[in-house]
Every structure is written in C-alpha cells, then in structure tokens.
Design a protein around this nucleic acid. Structure first.
Lengths: 203, 203
DNA sequence: ATTTATAATGACCAGCTGGTCATTAAAAGT
DNA sequence: ACTTTTAATGACCAGCTGGTCATTATAAAT
C-alpha cells in the first residue's frame, strides 16, 4: 500500500546533481540547499537519502573510484612494451568530466574534510594502480621487453604518480587537449626508451 | 611620536601562524579567530594587516611560490645529463613543511576559492618550471647528452608535471621517505635512460 | 472511496562565520 | 608629565550553514 521509489536510482540522481553543483560553484562554496535545488528536491529530502553533506561527498568519491577501479581491472596483461605504453597513453587520455571531478576532488581531499580512512582509501587506490603497473613491468621483464635491472614495484608506483601528475596538470591548469596530447606523446616516448633494454629500437 | 611596528615582520608572523593552523586543522575548517589565537592577536588586528581570509591565503601562496621560484632561478645550466638528473632528484626531495604546504594548497586550490588569476598564477609557475627544464634539455641536446628527436618544450613541461605528481603523492599519501627515495631513484634512472641518446651507457 | 505506510516538504533552529568599529593601550616626541 | 598618533582590542552583527521535524502529498492495496 505504501508509496514506493527506486532508492538506488534516487541516490544516483542526487549524486549527479551534487556533482554538477560542485563543479560549477566549487565544493566548499556549495550548500546543501544548492544541491537540493539542482536535484529539484527539498533539502529535507536529501537527508532521507544521505546522512549529510559529508556522506554525500564520500558517496561521490566512492562511486568515481569504483569506476576507475573497474577500468584498471579490465586491462589485460600486456605482451609487448608497446602495448603497455599504449595502456599508459589511454590512462592519460581523460575525459572532460573526469577533469572536472579532479578539480572538485582536490578541494575535498584535504585536512578539513578527509578522514583518515578516506585518505587511505585513495592512497590504496594508487597503490593498486602502482601494483598493476608493476605486474605489467614484471611480466615484460620476463619477456625481455623491459630492462631487467629495474625494480618493478618501485617503477610501477612511480609511474602511477607520474601519470597522475600529468593528468592533474591537464585538469587543473588550462592546458589544451592539443598540447596535452603532444606532452603525453613525448613523455610516453621517453618512458618507453627508458624502460626498453639496451637493444632493439622502435623508431 | 606615534607607536610604530615593523609591519612587514608582523605580516610574516601572521602568515606563519596562519599556516600552522591550516596545516593542523585544515584550511576550510580554520576560522580567522583560530588564526588570531595562534598569532596571539585579536581578530580585529588581523584585519589591520590583511583585507580578509582570502587575502591572507593569497599572501601565503604567493610567498611560497616566490620561494620556489627563487630556487629554480638559482639552478645553473647543467653541462651533463647526470647533472640534470641530479637537479631533478633534488627537486623531488622536498621537506616535510613543503609537504604540509601542498596538503593545504590543494584544499585551497579549487573552484571555491581560486580566482581566475590566482589559478593562472600557479599555472604559469609550472609553465616556467617546464620552460626551465626545456632549456636544460635543449642545452643538453646540443651537447649530445640527450637524444635529439625529443621536442624540448614538450618534454620539459611533461617533466614538470611528472615531478609534481611524484612530490604530490609523497605529500598526500603516507609514503615513507625510504620508499619515496627508492621510487625517485628508479624513476630518475628510467628518465635518464629514456633521454640519453642511443650510445654511451652510464651504469 | 478509503485506508495506510512511506516519501517529500520547507519553515525553522542553533551555531558559527567573516568582518566591523567604538574604545583602550602603547610608544615616541615634547 | 603630557600629548599625539598609530596599534590593538574584543564585543558585536548580519548572514549563512548544516541539519531537524511536524506536517502534507503520494501511490498502492483494499
């Protein structure tokens, strides 16, 4: 007899609206009322679906990282260095909305908001990304595609940081896609040359 | 006849206090009153020296970037690739207080606070850093220390992004100095191998 | 139509914010 | 000691925040 709604869908829609507001106004400048307006709901309604602004924020971040995680997991083990470099390339080719997310994320990710476990959550994500790269490197070392003297774990984690740096700069500063592509191309070329064992060249 | 104080010094001390509070409590969670308490001054006094919280923040960031700028400018042109790699190494070996700054900075650097020109200010800093690296690369290319096919400008800017990524991860996540050093060592080794022309090795 | 259980509402609140300003304290010159 | 000019103070304010809850609307089952 009761009225019934798709709660999961609702939550999703609220998060979408919240994200939209945050991107436009900035996270700390956005009030819960702003989000409510954007979602065409009353403020009180939001509190039915989320415990508060923080909980909403955490949900947004969780959702985003779950999506990224999926992406990574999908990637198969590369059999050649070039294939791996291609993967790196794809990782750095982020969409506009991902760039927007990053802007907001970095406003959120600070001592004011980030709880200990929240921050570890993100840290672990990058550790997993680093481990993923490390696996690839390690595999490529066995196949003599990458110089053996590299410590796969360290290189993998370093690559994760470096990729993040490039993506971040592209997102935060006004680097055109054209310029970004050129940077990425050169960077990948340099990384490739650095990883390759002192033997076969590639162009 | 009037009472007189060293205003510049005062401003500096207030910024120090502010920075301390921001690092401990987080930027957005810190109130002007908090800063006043930390500086052992009344709230009103702060408004004598700064137009408001935003102005204070901008001053902190300006001061920090001016310091970094100095550092860069000091660096001389490197005559060998190894010398350049050493410079990169030093750049990534940041102090604990710089790491703290970064945490705060990223909380500040978002749509909520960052004005257009503020954000451009930072963007230009990294462009200058990139240009500095590009110069070094270019010079090393003339000296046949770096493969000629690289586009110095792009590589330089990419390096700036990548360095930033590594430093950021070290600052934001709980990466121990030990691990950080290992990451940096491997990364530098990879970059070095990537830049070097296909000829003389180096270990 | 009526019932019923859930969903949605928005006026309301306590608390805190950045910012002001009439008042008081302090140092330098006489 | 007294004056003068600037420095410092902190109670105060308007405005906005996240969050609540008594009330009303809604849809399903009878």
């Amino acid at each position: 007899m009761p009225k019934v709604v798709d709660k999961a869908k609702m939550r999703g829609e609220i998060l979408d609206a919240a994200m939209k507001v945050f991107v436009e106004k900035g996270y700390h400048a956005s009030s819960v009322s702003d989000v409510a307006r954007a979602a065409s709901l009353a403020k009180g309604t939001l509190y039915i679906y989320f415990d508060g602004k923080d909980a909403m924020t955490k949900a947004i971040v969780d959702r985003h990282f779950a999506m990224l995680e999926d992406r990574i997991t999908q990637g198969q083990t590369c059999e050649t260095l070039d294939a791996f470099l291609d993967e790196l390339n794809r990782t750095m080719d982020i969409s506009t909305e991902q760039a927007s997310f990053l802007r907001v994320f970095f406003e959120v990710f600070g001592p004011s908001f980030a709880s200990e476990d929240f921050s570890q959550h993100v840290a672990r994500f990058f550790d997993r990304l680093g481990a993923h790269y490390a696996n690839q490197i390690s595999h490529l070392q066995e196949r003599k595609q990458v110089a053996e003297h590299y410590e796969a774990a360290s290189i993998g984690r370093a690559l994760a940081s470096m990729m993040d740096g490039v993506v971040l700069h592209m997102s935060l500063f006004d680097i055109t896609r054209r310029r970004h592509s050129r940077l990425v191309r050169e960077a990948i070329s340099m990384l490739g040359a650095g990883l390759r064992p002192a033997s076969a060249s590639n162009d």
